[in-house]
């Protein structure tokens, strides 16, 4: 018998636990020609703010062994632009769409969330308190528990949608942030965002990125992410969406065994747009081969 891949996380029913991560999949239409979007568990679109935001100067991205360092800086058309330019396509999909939101103040997060409340086709909000690439907001909220609490509470007060704070790996104790999310009304948590990093062009003796620093993603951060998901799962009963460096089903399975209910594929999509679909197939095969009847049975199934 085929194992049951379907899961429900934060009240959102998904046909399988494999999502695509914010910032690596645009607004989904960019990849519609090459992958069947209806096979994905969920789609998390690029970070949206209250007003249009131009992001960072170029260069914005540099490849490193086992990953890449980016400093895109959350360029986006603002929540109104997003609703008008991108939701018409997104709401035609039968895959749940989650919107990643960010702001420079807790108030901006809350207003963006409120605007998305009654937008048809938006199924949940991922709250980005962990982007390393903007001066205000982002990581400033994700590395300070009381600031994180302020954002999560402010968003909770203004939306009926499920909310999923996205946590930074750049903290001394991830469990503190997992508990803060639970206490202030989050429905799930996702982790990790990219890891703060820097690359220097030695020929020119300049930073490789115009923003000087950026965020490291890709296979290089996968073991870091697994450790943090494992720790977060010990600290909270909130469902966890595990991400960071997934390029194979085995990478995704590590997150699930560590305690994640779902996973997201990010950077690997650039190298192979089929990665998420291959991960879904690989998880199904693994569950069959190891006698599990459902994906949820494997969540937190770590033997110690």
């Amino acid at each position: 018998m085929k194992p049951d891949l379907a899961i429900e996380i934060a009240g959102i029913r998904m046909r399988n636990p494999v999502m695509v991560a914010s910032g690596t999949f645009g607004y989904a239409e960019e990849y519609a020609d090459v992958i069947d979007l209806s096979r994905l568990g969920a789609i998390v679109v690029k970070g949206i703010s209250l007003k249009p935001w131009s992001g960072n100067p170029i260069p914005r991205l540099v490849e490193v062994p086992g990953g890449l360092v980016n400093a895109i800086g959350l360029q986006n058309p603002g929540v109104e632009g997003f609703i008008h330019q991108h939701m018409p396509f997104l709401r035609t999909l039968d895959t749940p769409v989650l919107v990643n939101i960010w702001g420079r103040t807790a108030q901006e997060y809350a207003e963006t969330a409120a605007r998305l409340n009654d937008v048809e086709g938006v199924r949940g909000l991922e709250i980005n308190i962990s982007c390393p690439n903007i001066k205000e907001g982002g990581l400033a909220f994700g590395t300070n528990p009381s600031a994180a609490a302020d954002v999560i509470r402010a968003v909770r007060a203004r939306t009926r949608l499920p909310i999923i704070p996205k946590l930074s790996p750049n903290v001394s104790d991830i469990r503190v942030f997992a508990r803060v999310a639970a206490e202030h009304g989050a429905d799930a948590i996702s982790l990790i965002n990219s890891y703060p990093a820097m690359v220097i062009d030695v020929e020119r003796r300049r930073p490789a990125l115009a923003n000087v620093t950026g965020g490291l993603s890709g296979p290089a951060i996968h073991p870091i992410a697994v450790k943090l998901v494992y720790e977060a799962a010990q600290a909270t009963r909130l469902p966890i969406i595990g991400m960071g460096g997934i390029s194979t089903a085995r990478d995704a399975l590590e997150f699930i065994i560590a305690g994640a209910s779902a996973v997201a594929v990010g950077t690997a999509t650039f190298g192979d747009p089929m990665t998420a679909l291959n991960v879904i197939e690989g998880i199904e095969t693994y569950l069959s081969d190891h006698g599990f009847s459902s994906a949820s049975e494997l969540v937190g199934a770590l033997e110690q």
Partner: peptide, 15 residues
């Protein structure tokens, strides 16, 4: 230009 995704999703190769 150096590019990321090549399909317009990542916003790395902007001008």
């Amino acid at each position: 230009r150096h590019m990321g995704c090549g399909v317009g999703a990542c916003l790395a190769c902007v001008q």
